[in-house]
Protein backbone atom coordinates (compact mmCIF):
# COMPACT_ATOMS: atom_id res chain seq x y z
CA UNK A 1 0.00 0.00 0.00
CA UNK A 2 1.45 3.33 -1.03
CA UNK A 3 0.53 6.47 0.83
CA UNK A 4 -0.68 9.18 -1.54
CA UNK A 5 0.74 12.67 -1.17
CA UNK A 6 -1.82 15.33 -0.27
CA UNK A 7 0.54 18.20 -0.95
CA UNK A 8 3.17 18.34 -3.66
CA UNK A 9 5.20 21.49 -4.22
CA UNK A 10 7.87 21.85 -6.88
CA UNK A 11 10.21 24.83 -7.08
CA UNK A 12 7.50 26.95 -5.49
CA UNK A 13 8.41 30.62 -5.05
CA UNK A 14 6.82 33.87 -4.03
CA UNK A 15 8.05 37.36 -4.87
CA UNK A 16 6.39 40.49 -3.55
CA UNK A 17 6.79 43.63 -5.61
CA UNK A 18 7.50 46.62 -3.36
CA UNK A 19 8.42 50.25 -4.04
CA UNK A 20 12.06 49.57 -3.26
CA UNK A 21 12.22 46.52 -5.52
CA UNK A 22 11.13 42.91 -5.42
CA UNK A 23 11.29 40.97 -2.16
CA UNK A 24 11.69 37.20 -2.38
CA UNK A 25 9.57 35.69 0.39
CA UNK A 26 9.97 32.09 -0.73
CA UNK A 27 12.27 30.38 -3.18
CA UNK A 28 12.73 26.83 -4.55
CA UNK A 29 10.36 25.13 -2.13
CA UNK A 30 10.17 21.39 -2.85
CA UNK A 31 7.84 19.68 -0.41
CA UNK A 32 5.75 16.54 -0.33
CA UNK A 33 3.30 15.89 2.49
CA UNK A 34 1.61 12.52 2.78
CA UNK A 35 -2.05 12.07 3.62
CA UNK A 36 -2.43 11.81 7.39
CA UNK A 37 1.05 13.12 8.12
CA UNK A 38 1.85 15.66 10.85
CA UNK A 39 4.42 18.15 9.59
CA UNK A 40 5.84 21.08 11.53
CA UNK A 41 7.58 24.03 9.90
CA UNK A 42 10.09 25.93 12.07
CA UNK A 43 12.16 28.96 11.35
CA UNK A 44 12.83 32.51 12.52
CA UNK A 45 10.52 35.35 11.53
CA UNK A 46 10.90 36.36 7.91
CA UNK A 47 11.68 32.83 6.72
CA UNK A 48 8.44 32.68 4.75
CA UNK A 49 6.74 29.99 6.82
CA UNK A 50 3.51 31.95 7.17
CA UNK A 51 3.62 32.83 3.45
CA UNK A 52 3.93 29.12 2.66
CA UNK A 53 0.94 28.33 4.88
CA UNK A 54 -1.12 31.10 3.27
CA UNK A 55 -0.31 29.74 -0.19
CA UNK A 56 -1.49 26.30 0.95
CA UNK A 57 -4.66 27.90 2.34
CA UNK A 58 -5.31 29.70 -0.94
CA UNK A 59 -5.00 33.10 0.77
CA UNK A 60 -1.97 34.05 -1.32
CA UNK A 61 -0.77 33.15 -4.80
CA UNK A 62 2.67 31.72 -5.51
CA UNK A 63 4.60 33.47 -8.29
CA UNK A 64 6.71 30.57 -9.58
CA UNK A 65 6.80 26.78 -9.58
CA UNK A 66 3.83 24.44 -9.29
CA UNK A 67 1.88 22.96 -6.41
CA UNK A 68 -1.12 20.75 -5.80
CA UNK A 69 -3.22 20.19 -2.69
CA UNK A 70 -5.54 17.19 -2.68
CA UNK A 71 -4.97 16.80 -6.42
CA UNK A 72 -6.04 20.37 -7.17
CA UNK A 73 -3.73 23.00 -8.56
CA UNK A 74 -2.83 25.59 -5.92
CA UNK A 75 -4.37 28.97 -6.57
CA UNK A 76 -7.55 27.64 -8.17
CA UNK A 77 -10.13 28.87 -5.67
CA UNK A 78 -10.67 28.17 -1.96
CA UNK A 79 -8.65 25.25 -0.63
CA UNK A 80 -10.21 22.37 1.28
CA UNK A 81 -8.46 23.20 4.54
CA UNK A 82 -9.25 24.16 8.12
CA UNK A 83 -7.18 26.97 9.58
CA UNK A 84 -6.18 27.85 13.13
CA UNK A 85 -4.64 31.27 13.74
CA UNK A 86 -2.45 32.59 16.53
CA UNK A 87 -5.47 34.40 17.97
CA UNK A 88 -8.63 32.37 18.38
CA UNK A 89 -10.48 34.83 16.05
CA UNK A 90 -13.87 33.73 17.41
CA UNK A 91 -16.75 36.07 16.59
CA UNK A 92 -17.70 37.71 19.92
CA UNK A 93 -21.36 38.14 18.92
CA UNK A 94 -21.98 34.42 18.47
CA UNK A 95 -21.98 31.57 20.96
CA UNK A 96 -19.27 28.92 20.85
CA UNK A 97 -21.36 26.40 18.90
CA UNK A 98 -22.24 28.95 16.18
CA UNK A 99 -18.58 29.91 15.99
CA UNK A 100 -17.59 26.29 15.49
CA UNK A 101 -20.24 25.97 12.76
CA UNK A 102 -19.00 29.05 10.86
CA UNK A 103 -17.26 27.16 8.00
CA UNK A 104 -20.51 25.23 7.43
CA UNK A 105 -22.88 28.17 7.84
CA UNK A 106 -20.96 30.17 5.23
CA UNK A 107 -21.85 27.47 2.69
CA UNK A 108 -25.33 26.34 3.74
CA UNK A 109 -27.81 26.38 6.60
CA UNK A 110 -26.32 23.99 9.21
CA UNK A 111 -28.28 20.75 9.46
CA UNK A 112 -28.97 18.67 12.57
CA UNK A 113 -26.04 16.48 11.54
CA UNK A 114 -23.77 19.54 11.31
CA UNK A 115 -24.76 20.63 14.80
CA UNK A 116 -24.18 17.10 16.07
CA UNK A 117 -20.71 17.14 14.47
CA UNK A 118 -19.93 20.45 16.17
CA UNK A 119 -21.09 19.13 19.53
CA UNK A 120 -19.01 15.99 19.06
CA UNK A 121 -15.89 18.08 18.40
CA UNK A 122 -16.63 20.26 21.43
CA UNK A 123 -16.95 17.11 23.50
CA UNK A 124 -13.60 15.87 22.18
CA UNK A 125 -11.89 19.02 23.54
CA UNK A 126 -13.95 19.12 26.75
CA UNK A 127 -16.04 22.19 25.91
CA UNK A 128 -19.50 20.57 25.97
CA UNK A 129 -20.63 22.76 28.88
CA UNK A 130 -19.52 25.90 27.04
CA UNK A 131 -21.31 25.34 23.72
CA UNK A 132 -23.90 28.04 24.45
CA UNK A 133 -21.46 30.48 26.05
CA UNK A 134 -20.01 33.53 24.36
CA UNK A 135 -16.25 33.51 23.56
CA UNK A 136 -15.43 36.19 26.18
CA UNK A 137 -16.65 33.79 28.88
CA UNK A 138 -13.89 31.31 27.93
CA UNK A 139 -10.19 31.32 28.89
CA UNK A 140 -7.58 31.82 26.16
CA UNK A 141 -6.83 28.09 26.03
CA UNK A 142 -10.53 27.21 25.78
CA UNK A 143 -11.00 29.76 22.99
CA UNK A 144 -8.15 28.18 21.04
CA UNK A 145 -9.71 24.71 21.57
CA UNK A 146 -12.96 26.05 20.11
CA UNK A 147 -10.99 27.47 17.17
CA UNK A 148 -9.55 24.00 16.52
CA UNK A 149 -13.08 22.55 16.51
CA UNK A 150 -14.09 25.25 14.01
CA UNK A 151 -11.18 24.27 11.75
CA UNK A 152 -12.33 20.63 11.75
CA UNK A 153 -16.14 20.92 11.58
CA UNK A 154 -16.39 20.88 7.78
CA UNK A 155 -14.20 17.76 7.52
CA UNK A 156 -11.36 19.44 5.59
CA UNK A 157 -8.66 17.23 4.11
CA UNK A 158 -6.02 19.25 5.94
CA UNK A 159 -5.54 21.26 9.12
CA UNK A 160 -3.27 24.32 8.92
CA UNK A 161 -2.09 25.85 12.19
CA UNK A 162 -0.22 29.16 12.28
CA UNK A 163 1.54 29.42 15.67
CA UNK A 164 -1.74 28.42 17.30
CA UNK A 165 -0.52 28.57 20.90
CA UNK A 166 1.98 31.41 20.61
CA UNK A 167 -0.18 33.72 22.69
CA UNK A 168 -0.79 31.26 25.53
CA UNK A 169 1.17 30.62 28.73
CA UNK A 170 3.65 27.72 28.75
CA UNK A 171 1.56 25.34 30.88
CA UNK A 172 -1.62 25.79 28.85
CA UNK A 173 0.52 25.37 25.77
CA UNK A 174 1.90 21.99 26.90
CA UNK A 175 -1.59 20.71 27.70
CA UNK A 176 -2.95 21.86 24.34
CA UNK A 177 -0.04 20.22 22.54
CA UNK A 178 -0.95 16.90 24.17
CA UNK A 179 -4.51 17.53 23.04
CA UNK A 180 -3.50 18.33 19.46
CA UNK A 181 -1.56 15.07 19.37
CA UNK A 182 -4.68 13.20 20.52
CA UNK A 183 -6.93 15.02 18.02
CA UNK A 184 -4.52 14.15 15.23
CA UNK A 185 -4.49 10.48 16.21
CA UNK A 186 -8.30 10.39 16.50
CA UNK A 187 -9.13 12.27 13.29
CA UNK A 188 -6.28 11.03 11.05
CA UNK A 189 -6.10 14.51 9.51
CA UNK A 190 -3.05 15.83 7.73
CA UNK A 191 -1.68 18.64 9.89
CA UNK A 192 0.76 21.41 8.97
CA UNK A 193 1.90 23.35 12.03
CA UNK A 194 3.87 26.58 11.86
CA UNK A 195 5.83 27.39 15.01
CA UNK A 196 9.01 29.08 16.14
CA UNK A 197 9.31 26.70 19.06
CA UNK A 198 11.63 23.83 18.16
CA UNK A 199 10.49 21.64 21.11
CA UNK A 200 6.85 22.16 20.10
CA UNK A 201 7.65 21.11 16.53
CA UNK A 202 9.57 17.99 17.66
CA UNK A 203 6.92 17.10 20.24
CA UNK A 204 4.05 17.14 17.76
CA UNK A 205 5.37 16.35 14.30
CA UNK A 206 6.50 13.28 12.43
CA UNK A 207 8.68 15.49 10.29
CA UNK A 208 10.15 18.91 10.99
CA UNK A 209 10.78 21.22 8.05
CA UNK A 210 13.50 23.75 8.85
CA UNK A 211 13.32 27.08 7.05
CA UNK A 212 15.76 29.92 6.79
CA UNK A 213 15.23 33.61 5.88
CA UNK A 214 16.53 35.93 3.15
CA UNK A 215 15.36 34.38 0.94
CA UNK A 216 12.85 32.07 2.64
CA UNK A 217 13.70 28.48 1.78
CA UNK A 218 13.75 24.94 3.17
CA UNK A 219 17.21 24.09 4.55
CA UNK A 220 16.49 20.71 6.14
CA UNK A 221 13.81 18.12 6.75
CA UNK A 222 14.21 16.12 9.97
CA UNK A 223 12.31 12.86 10.56
CA UNK A 224 11.09 12.53 14.15
CA UNK A 225 11.57 8.89 15.21
CA UNK A 226 9.03 8.84 18.07
CA UNK A 227 5.73 6.92 17.77
CA UNK A 228 2.39 8.59 17.03
CA UNK A 229 1.37 8.98 20.68
CA UNK A 230 3.31 11.72 22.46
CA UNK A 231 3.21 12.40 26.19
CA UNK A 232 4.79 15.17 28.25
CA UNK A 233 7.39 12.67 29.60
CA UNK A 234 8.92 12.72 26.12
CA UNK A 235 10.04 16.31 26.73
CA UNK A 236 12.54 15.13 29.37
CA UNK A 237 14.19 12.32 27.40
CA UNK A 238 17.77 12.66 26.04
CA UNK A 239 16.60 11.63 22.54
CA UNK A 240 14.14 14.53 22.52
CA UNK A 241 16.80 16.99 23.67
CA UNK A 242 19.30 15.71 21.11
CA UNK A 243 16.85 16.13 18.25
CA UNK A 244 16.02 19.66 19.35
CA UNK A 245 19.74 20.55 19.44
CA UNK A 246 20.25 19.12 15.94
CA UNK A 247 17.55 21.41 14.62
CA UNK A 248 18.69 24.40 16.66
CA UNK A 249 22.19 24.11 15.14
CA UNK A 250 20.74 25.27 11.81
CA UNK A 251 19.82 28.58 13.33
CA UNK A 252 23.10 28.99 15.21
CA UNK A 253 24.91 28.58 11.87
CA UNK A 254 22.56 31.15 10.41
CA UNK A 255 23.22 33.62 13.23
CA UNK A 256 26.99 33.16 12.96
CA UNK A 257 27.03 33.68 9.19
Amino acid sequence: MTISPIVELEQLGKVYPTRTGDVTALTDVDLRIDDGEFVAIVGPSGCGKTTLLKILAGLEQHTSGVGTLGGRELGSGAADVGMVFQKATLLPWQDVRSNVLLPVSLQRRPSKADRAAADELLEMVGLTDFASKRPHELSGGMQQRAAICRALVHEPSMLLMDEPFGALDAMTRDLLNVEVNRIWRETHKTVVLITHSIPEAVFLAQRVIVMSPRPGRIVDQVEVPFGPERTLELLGTPEFGALCSTIRRHFEKEAAA
Binding site: G58, L59, A78, M83, T89, L102, L106
Partner: peptide, 22 residues
Protein backbone atom coordinates in the same frame (compact mmCIF):
# COMPACT_ATOMS: atom_id res chain seq x y z
CA UNK B 1 -8.94 41.83 12.49
CA UNK B 2 -6.94 40.64 9.43
CA UNK B 3 -6.95 37.02 10.64
CA UNK B 4 -10.74 37.11 10.94
CA UNK B 5 -10.92 38.29 7.32
CA UNK B 6 -8.56 35.44 6.33
CA UNK B 7 -10.76 33.02 8.27
CA UNK B 8 -13.77 34.06 6.18
CA UNK B 9 -11.76 33.88 2.95
CA UNK B 10 -10.37 30.40 3.73
CA UNK B 11 -13.92 29.23 4.26
CA UNK B 12 -15.06 30.61 0.91
CA UNK B 13 -17.17 33.53 2.18
CA UNK B 14 -18.75 35.68 -0.53
CA UNK B 15 -18.07 39.44 -0.48
CA UNK B 16 -21.62 39.96 0.80
CA UNK B 17 -21.14 37.41 3.61
CA UNK B 18 -17.84 39.04 4.52
CA UNK B 19 -19.62 42.39 4.83
CA UNK B 20 -22.80 41.28 6.57
CA UNK B 21 -21.42 38.57 8.86
CA UNK B 22 -18.01 40.01 9.77
Amino acid sequence: DKDQIDLFRVNGASPLQLRMRL
